[in-house]
């Protein structure tokens, strides 16, 4: 029973982080039609920034906020410097087939990932570091008994829940949120309604960048920080996004939790070595049985 509870709580906390990663991926996918493989590179980079600030004696919370801002800025930069020129270039190019159009931004995002990892290596000498948590990461002790969850688990779940509530309010209640949803659903009608779609696009990158940074900050305390340490999280986040349905924000959250539980239970009941295999199987099963994900729209996206 205790093992089950431990797996459950750890799965919830992990799943909450994956939900944020998936949310970041889905935001850019909906807003710009791109799967951003550089996302966890961005997270790694901003987590290094936070870590450097903390090492130099600044408070955790200052570092936390600065990392989020840096993540948002990094997202904006990627859109302005790479993705926007890209969408202009290959309109005129010979590589203009639908398949290539979807492929080229993916390649660009991989290039950005490589770039960020190299830069992090240069700035921080590629050293592996630990990253602090604002609260204890050991099992919480309540009334003399060790609980199957840690204070940091609760912290993570609380922060993620807060972020999800705010995001959902933003999309449902604000005009900008409506503009973003409209653009994601039907760009032409959105444009004809006077929505500036380029601004919506960059906003998707900004929010996604901040979300990725948050994921990095939450994941770092339970692993080490190195230029490539978050690559795995991207794979997991991608799986979560596909499981939930790439174009659904609630789906991203659900997908994140599902993947979190799968990983946690495999980890607790079998061995960490089975995690990759479990992810691969989960991904393939979802793609074969329900390619649009658990909460994705019915419309089949093929090309």
């Amino acid at each position: 029973m205790n093992l089950f509870l431990s797996a459950f709580f750890s799965g919830t906390a992990r799943g909450a982080i994956y939900a944020i990663v998936a949310l970041g991926l889905v935001l850019v996918w909906r807003g710009a039609g791109i799967i951003n493989f550089a996302q966890m590179g961005q997270a790694m980079f901003t987590t290094y920034i936070a870590s450097t600030l903390i090492i130099s004696g600044k408070s955790y919370w200052l570092a936390f906020v600065i990392a989020l801002i840096a993540g948002a800025m990094l997202g904006a930069l990627i859109d302005i410097l790479v993705m926007r020129p890209l969408s202009r270039v290959h309109r005129a190019e010979a590589l203009n087939s639908p398949a290539m159009k979807a492929t080229i931004p993916v390649i660009a995002s991989l290039g950005i990932l490589g770039l960020l990892q190299a830069l992090a290596g240069m700035f921080w000498v590629g050293q592996e570091r630990g990253f602090p948590a604002p609260v204890a990461i050991e099992g919480l002790i309540v009334a003399g008994r060790k609980m199957p969850f840690t204070a940091f688990d609760i912290f993570t779940i609380a922060i993620v829940a807060l972020v999800l509530v705010l995001t959902s309010l933003f999309f449902r209640k604000t005009g900008t949120g409506l503009a973003m949803r409209a653009t994601a659903l039907n760009q032409e009608v959105a444009k004809l309604s006077g929505i500036r779609t380029t601004q919506v696009r960059i906003l998707s990158w900004i929010i996604s960048g901040a979300a990725s940074s948050l994921a990095g900050l939450l994941i770092a305390p339970s692993s080490i920080l190195s230029p490539s340490s978050l690559d795995l999280i991207l794979i997991i986040g991608f799986t979560a996004a596909v499981v939930g349905g790439l174009d659904s924000l609630p789906g991203a959250v659900l997908g994140g939790l599902i993947v979190g539980y799968v990983i946690s239970f495999v980890n607790f009941y079998r061995s960490p070595e089975d995690i990759f295999l479990a992810i691969l199987i989960l991904l393939l099963v979802v793609l074969l049985v329900r390619p649009n994900g658990v909460m994705g729209s019915k419309q089949v996206r093929r090309v």
Partner: peptide
Amino acid sequence: AVISELTVAENIAMGGLFR
């Protein structure tokens, strides 16, 4: 041309967003 995934009210609100 309306956005079927949005409500009627949201579709109308969308038209006036820029103002």
